[in-house]
Amino acid sequence: MSEDLGYGWQGDLVDLPAYLKRIGHDGDIAPTGETLRALHRAHTTSIPFENLEIMLGRGVDLALDAVQDKMVRRSRGGYCFEHNRLFAAVLERLGYEVTALAGRVTLGARKLLPATHALLHVRAPGQPHDEPAWLCDVGFGAGPLEPLPFRDGAEADQEGWGFRIQQRRTVSPWSPGTVSWELLQRGVDGWAQRHTFPMNETFRIDFDVANHFVATSTRSPFTTRPFAQKFTLDALHVLDGTDLTTTRPDGSTVSSSSLTPEQVPETLADTFGIVLEGEDVARLVDFARTNPRNG
């Protein structure tokens, strides 16, 4: 066996039958654009977004066997590094050309945040290079349902959810005119920038570094409260601390409620498909009780 130098995604270690069963995909797996769209849609609507390992006092392990055990075999969810670690390995196994990118989340941010969102630049094998590659974003928790073509100004309406990808030029005096990209999503007030990202290749070791910050820093939004999202064709369910909301594709709020800490585990199971085991239920309730969300 050749030495693993850390450049690829270890697609040969993927339990492909188990993954396909987890996301409910029983169609073609030939590495085409059609297959990529089907896998992306199945993944985003089957595997939820969640940060609960941090609340449970454990680290977030990005080793492929750990990610598969958690998200595939135990039917848990994860956040962007876990989702894209798994999806990149699956796509590599199927024969796609996969390049990871790092994005800077801007949606809802009140100040500049580090580049801690993982995205994937994907091409089908043999795809002509005069055709745009695909932007895959399975780890944000709120879509898109399907990949977006890497084409300036490309818009997609996916079951009513709206997304746009476009180029942007930086205004930094250190790199004037540098071209990067941004992903926008459509809401009740029109288009809003979700994250920005340059075309710089990111590797597994870069995931590890960013993951350490996200999972451990007091400045990370994911170390302060439970956060989960379940994305479906017609609704986005969000648990933020003990606040539960459901929104529709147009951005309108369908329901909003505040839970007691004791209601959180049951809600995670019923609404998000996240079933905690053993002592994890008590641990999460205790965390929610002793760490109330601060506005």
Rank of each mutant, 00 (worst) to 15 (best):
L107G: 13
V275K: 15
D157T: 00
R283Y: 06
P261R: 10
I274F: 08
L236W: 05
R58Q: 11
F222Q: 02
D28S: 14
L56Y: 08
M55C: 11
E262Q: 11
D130A: 09
R204G: 10
A192W: 00
L268T: 02
I165H: 05
V285L: 10
F207W: 04
L107F: 15
Q158N: 02
R225N: 04
S256T: 05
R85N: 13
H121S: 12
S252A: 05
D286C: 09
N294Y: 02
F213W: 14
A269N: 11
W174R: 02
T246M: 08
E92A: 01
T290K: 14
P249S: 11
V171Q: 12
E97T: 04
G141K: 09
W9I: 00
M199T: 00
R169M: 02
A288C: 15
F87T: 02
R225H: 13
T232L: 10
T196W: 06
W174F: 07
D61S: 05
G57P: 05
R219C: 05
A102Y: 07
V238F: 07
R110C: 08
F231K: 06
E50I: 10
V122I: 15
D250E: 07
T116A: 15
P198V: 00
S172Y: 04
E50P: 10
A30C: 13
F227D: 03
E92R: 06
L148I: 03
F140D: 05
W161V: 00
W161R: 04
P249T: 07
R93G: 01
E155W: 01
A89N: 02
V60F: 04
F207Y: 11
G103R: 10
G108H: 05
R104N: 14
I54V: 10
A38V: 07
G6M: 02
K21R: 12
E146M: 12
D286M: 09
T290V: 06
L119A: 11
R204I: 01
V98L: 13
G295H: 11
D15Q: 07
F87P: 05
T45W: 13
G278I: 01
G24Y: 11
V281C: 14
D189H: 04
V90A: 02
F87Y: 12
L184Y: 00
A235W: 01
T232K: 08
Q263V: 00
L107I: 12
L13S: 07
A282S: 13
G251E: 09
A30Y: 14
A18T: 00
P221R: 05
